[in-house]
Amino acid sequence: MEEIIISTIQRTMVAGTPLLLATTGEVLCERSGILNLGVEGVMAVGAVVAFIVTMTTGQPWLGVLAAVGAGMAISVIHAFASVSLQANQVVSGLALTMLGLGLSGMIGKPYVGRPLSIKMENVEIPFLSDIPYIGQAVFNQSPFFYLAIVLALVSWFFLERTRLGIQVRSTGENPKATETQGVNVDLVRYWSVIIGGGFSALAGAHLSISYSKSWVEGMTAGRGWIAIALTIFALWNPGRAIWASFVFGGIFVVQYLLQPLGISPNFLAMLPYIATLVILLVISFRDPRKLNAPAMLAAPYKRGER
């Protein structure tokens, strides 16, 4: 029993990690007023790039770096379309997802089913990992796990406590007023989209080189879309994203726990998607004014207008 509890918590943390990374990225992006539905595609690109680079160089961190670079580069497309050309952000994001899934499928083809022999060692936090139960379950994890939490906290601090973060938020709330304060709204939005893309790619890198240590087409399995839902559930707050992501990680893990009970695996596979609908329903009962949604989310901004 003890082992089951520990391994369940441990796997929950692992499953929540990519969700947290992608959600944090989407929060940063949406706070600037740009909706990016390209998360799923960028995540797939990050996964395949990290996998290929890690496999060929033997350096997982080089793989991570390459993935983040690729994710940021491909996100420029969405930034250009939605910021410079004021295009419809829903369709532009969808196109990015299609492109990302397609590109990852194409460049990843020769790598399907090849296991990764290079292992990323777990990091044990001294003292904390000695705490009974929680110690080994939480404080003996892949570096991605700590990275995800640290990045979420840093992002929270950035948005809430720094001058630049306030500029990002006010860009999402009232771009016109922000512009008159001397802030380059377009530039802020470009960087928010690009950095958000880097986060999505990082989530993908975790999936391919740490979580499953292999690459298959479609391995992101809708996690990018779940991250977009979690962004809403987290009320656009990276701090809240931490627990929201790990609650969701738990839902992924519950599937495996319930499997021995003879429940249809297809039914269990539905759980994360059903849970996504449920959390959105739950959050909808809150006062919309307290939802914290950026006022100008998905509204194109044109300099010199209104």
């Binding site: 299609m98 397609g102 990852s104 499928g105």
Partner: peptide, 8 residues
């Protein structure tokens, strides 16, 4: 996946 790229 090529078709997906073309479509995207």
């Amino acid at each position: 996946a090529t078709v997906q790229i073309v479509n995207g």
